[in-house]
Structure formats: C-alpha cells, structure tokens
Design a binder for these strands. Structure first.
Lengths: 331, 331
DNA sequence: ACCCTCCCGGAAAGCGGTTTCCAAGTCTGC
DNA sequence: GCAGACTTGGAAACCGCTTTCCGGGAGGGT
C-alpha cells in the first residue's frame, strides 16, 4: 500500500507537508510544493489510511446505525433517512442488524464503541425487559463517557436523545377515526406483549375506545411481522367489524389471510395498520394507517446525536391518520 | 477513553501482556495475570480502539457494501444477505448508498479503500457508459493492488468476482411462458436504456419472442422505479395483451396505473415483473415474475470476495419463472 | 537599516494498539 | 543434577498519520 511517506519522498518534501496538502489542514502550503505533492499522490494512487487518521486525530468520521432488520421497510426507511443526513455531513455509515435479538443490540453498541464511531443510532422498539434495557443503558453510558454520542428512534428508555413516534396518540386518533365511521367491535393484532412499540399502539387504541365508551377490543398477540399478522387474523372473532394491526406489515399479512378465506375487505371486515410504509402504498385494498415520517425521523435522530452538548432531548413525532379503502363506513 | 495502558497499569502488568489477554493472541498468559488483566479491563470498562488495532494489525474486520438505494427492497434483500454472511464471519458492515449516481459509486470505492475495508461489494446494475465503468474499474484495481478484495452483484463488467443474475435467460423464459399462455402482443416497460440490467432483461425478452416468431414488443423506456412503471404503463398500446415490466417495483407501478384507469388485470391486460420481491408477494393481483434468490446472491458475493486468491470468478444465478394471477391464459 | 511579525517547511512526539525479540524461569529426559 | 526445549513476561519497535514546536526567510513599519 502506498503511504504518505512514499508520497512525501517522491515529492521531495517532508511528511508534514504532504499531510498538510493531502488531508485538509488549517495551514497553508506553497503552491509549488502543493502541486508537487498532489502530482506525486496522484501518480502513486495514494489513499489515506483512515484507521491511521482516526487514531492520530482521535476522531472518526463514521457513525453506526443499529436496526432490527434491513429488509423490513420500516427500518430501511429509517436507515435511509439517517444515511442521507450522514452523507450531507460527510460521514460514513456502519450498519448492524440485530434480527430482534437484544443481546445483539448490546453487542453492536460495544463494537461500535470499539470502533470509536462518532455517534450511534439505535432504531426500533425497546423491549419491556428492564434487565436488558439496563445493560444496554450501561453500555451506552460507557460509550458516552468516552465522548461518544447516541440517539434512538423509539421509546425514551435509554437516557439518550430520542425521536419518539407518538404511538399512543397515533393509535388513539386512529381508533377515534374508525369509531367515527361507525365501528364498535374491534380487534387488535397486537404483536408481542413485551415490545414497547406494539404495546403502546395497542394501549393507545384501547384507551381511546374506552374513552368513547366502546367495548374493549379483542387483543391477539403474536409476532410483529407479516406472518404474525396473518396468523392473528385467523383468530379474530366473528363479531368484529374492524381490525387494527399494530403495523402495516402485519396488516398486509392479515389482508392475505382474509383474502385466502374469502373474507372481503372492507365489505366484511375493515383493516387498518400503522406506519404507512411506502412500498405498500399500492396495496389493494389500500391500507388505512397512521403515517409516520420515517425518513425524517432517521435524519432527525442523527442530527440530535451530532448536536453539541445540551440536555438530553426527546422529540415526539406525531402520526397522521390516513383513511384509505381497507376501511369502510358502517351504515 | 480508557486505553490498554490504563488497564495494564491497573493490573500491574506490561502492555504486551494486557494486549495478549484482551485481544486474542496465539500466546498464552498465565492464569493469575490473565485474571488480573480481565478484572482491570472490566472495572475500567475498557474497549479496544479498533482504529489502533487496524493500524497495528494492518487488517480491518470491516467490509463495505455499496448499493443504489436501501429503501428499494431489491437492494435491501441483497444487503441483508451479505450482512448475514458478514456477521457469521465476525465482520462489520459499512453501507453506502449512491442513489444511482455512478460518481457516488466511485467515490464510495475510494472511501472504502481509504478505510482499508477487507472487501467491497458492489450491488446493482452497471451503466452502459464505458467511461464511467472504466473509472470504476481503475478505482477497484487500485484497491485490489493494495490487497483489497472486491465482488459485485450484477454484470461482469468490473473485472472482479461477480454474481450475475441470468437476466437475459430469465426474461427469455418468462417470454416463453407468457407466449405459452397464448399471448402474442407484448409491451416491455424497459427502464432506462443505459442500465445494463434493464437492457438485458428487455433484450432477453425480445429475443425469445423473436425466436418464437412473435411480433416485436412495444418497448417503452423510463425510470427504473415504481413511478417509472406507472408512467410507462400509460403509454402501452391498445393491442397489447401482456406487459412485462423489467422489475417488480415497476410492475407494481404499472398495476397502479391500470387500476386507476379501470383497466382490469389480468382480464384486460396481463402484467409480469422481475425479481420476486418478498414485500410484494401479497400484492393483489399476485405478480407473475422471475424469482431471484437475492439474499443468497448477496451472501454468495461476500463469500466470493473473501475467498482466497484464485482466478476471477463469475457465477450465473438462474431465475425461476413464477406464474401468478397477474397473468391470464388467452383462450 | 533594523527589529518584529508572519508565513511556511521540517523534525519529532504522539495516537493506541500488536508483535518481535530477549531474558528468565520451568519442565523434561538422562 | 544439568543441558536443552518450552513457556511466559516485558521492553521496544513499528503501523501511518496529525500536529506541535522550531527555525529560517520574507515582508512591513519606523
């Protein structure tokens, strides 16, 4: 590999001068030398060794993002938003996927800490297990003690800057909207009980129904993915006229289940989701859902993480109910 | 930040010993010292500085993946496959997104080179511009000269290990299958002419029709995304009974266009795509397409890149025609 | 003309690890 | 009981770059 020393030698200058020319410095270098160095670097095909730079500078230009599953469009959108924001700051992005294993999440924070990344972004729901959350908090705290910065998209459980989707309120608004259409008997495909995002959405929905004086919904737990929605849909009681799946991907699974059983949506049963995943906007029937500005949230989380010292910030992001054809008005 | 020296001091041992205990070495360290070092590291919350390790070892444990767009499920699947494979090898992943800008792609190779990543994976179609391809090749060659490894998913145009989806053959098989159902008048929503993947799929389709003695299809160029499919669908001639969109996402756009216009699929017109994107499997009507094992391809590309020296490998990956309800049999 | 800045080039000290090379034990086998 | 082979701990060189500190020369004010 070509080193800076090779370049300096070839250009007949010192290491210091070569460094100043090639890797941005506040100091000026005379035009003649500057040209010689640049030419030498070009001829030799010099590429700075960033590991060495990081070590010498004591700061890297990499950030880390930890997501559960990149093939889940929810996380893809979040990550994409953060990556665009990172790109505008000239930062590189390291991505880790946990596949919903909290231990993996902790391990990634540790690894990213070891990498001395500038910031760590944690995307995705926390789990309700205080032991796990506690260990993650510790790991993050250690990282931050060493000057690392961190932010999270999801629940404010980690003591770091947080972009928090208003899951409860979004679900509540959705419930009110659906009730406004005349529905009274609901089911919630609620996902795993320990997943805070799922639990919050479910709770917000239930509370709103309660406030409206409507009967409590049938709550069906299961996996937080397409197949979870599919399976859960098959357990929905006959009296239910409207099903709320706590995310869009589950809602699509539920729609598939109904389609296979010959149950018409929305004629026989209405279905709503949450997130407004872009890739699913062309689904038929079009999904009623709560829109979350995922890309912005990812970008915002990065901004928060990078912003200089100030008290820990928690930003609520409101969702917007989007009524589409998967839901019908009861006469 | 806690350094190895701090740990060594606290444990009362030398730097060398501390290093050997904490960061895997071939050499043994006595149980007593080992315990002391481990305890000290734990108490202090030591995290090795990977930049320093990379520098000292001359090898990093990071790989780079360059994709066009993470929110495109095609790339998400590819990246996910590669990331899983990387995780089993204990490698970290750096992801760059180019948003289909070839300059960005080159820039990323340069940056990843500077990072001295172990391997670079380039995912996604090449463009037919020899100048751009040439510069990318050069950049890759430089990287490889320095001991870097590279592989690509797409066309064998870069002189590196390649996992090449059999776009021509897949499209040809699809054409034959569709012709077998009695279709004779086709349109191809062909994407951008300079995009090799799109061009290959289009060409394979046309050639197969030609061999069957069928009339040449109407070819409509446009963007390679959902909106491109939507727009192109509106230009399809009235005589056409079957539309081939060169990827699934475009096909979904086309379906949306037809739906809006009240054209029934498959009754009035049949539509087929390419890729068999998982997220779209629940689309209605279910999309006839050519299945590509995207995750495997991503994983395989990483394997190829990591494998020790041997001649450059090019592996064809066959697609499998999947007939679903978006296509009807002509009577 | 002289003194004081200011500017620019180079030498060298780190940054935080790894690893080679020594030296001092500790085991063996006879 | 002792030479020789192993094992284990430490000192120090080194990885490639940044940056401080110095010194010499040019420019400017009086």
């Amino acid at each position: 590999m070509v080193t800076l020393e090779d370049v300096a030698k070839q250009a007949g200058v010192s290491l210091a001068t070569a460094s100043r020319v090639l890797n941005g410095s506040t100091r000026q270098v005379g035009a003649a030398l500057r040209a010689r160095v640049e030419q030498a670097a070009d001829e030799l095909g010099y590429r700075a060794n960033i590991a060495a730079q990081t070590l010498a500078r004591g700061a890297s230009n990499v950030i880390g993002i930890v997501v559960h599953d990149l093939t889940d469009p929810y996380f893809a959108a979040l990550a994409d938003g953060a990556m665009r924001a990172a790109a505008t700051e000239g930062l590189l992005v390291m991505v880790g996927t946990t596949h919903r294993d909290p231990e993996q999440e902790i391990a990634y924070v540790r690894t990213l800490h070891a990498q001395r990344v500038r910031a760590v972004l944690l995307a995705g729901s926390r789990v309700a297990d205080p032991a796990v959350t506690g260990r993650l908090r510790e790991e993050l705290a250690r990282y931050q003690e060493g000057g690392g910065r961190a932010a999270c998209v999801g629940q404010d459980l980690l003591g770091v800057d947080t972009v928090a989707p208003a899951n409860r309120q979004g679900a509540a608004e959705l419930a009110r909207a659906l009730a406004g259409l005349g529905h009274t008997r609901f089911a919630v495909l609620a996902g795993p009980p320990h997943l805070v995002t799922a639990a919050d959405r479910c709770a917000g929905f239930r509370e709103a129904l309660d406030e409206l004086g409507l009967p409590a919904p049938q709550v069906i737990h299961g996996p937080f993915d397409r197949d979870g929605g599919y399976a859960a849909a098959n357990q929905v009681g006959a009296e239910v006229t409207c099903v709320f799946a706590v995310n869009d991907v589950m809602a699509v699974g539920a729609l598939a289940a109904y389609r296979e059983r010959g149950v018409r949506v929305p004629e026989d049963v209405s279905v709503a989701g949450f997130d407004d995943i872009v890739t699913l906007r062309d689904h038929v029937p079009a999904l009623t859902t709560v829109r979350l500005p995922l890309k912005d949230m990812g970008a915002r989380a990065l901004e928060l993480a990078l912003n200089e010292d100030r008290p820990v910030a928690v930003e609520q992001v409101a969702g917007e109910v989007v009524l589409r054809e998967s839901v019908r008005r009861m006469t």
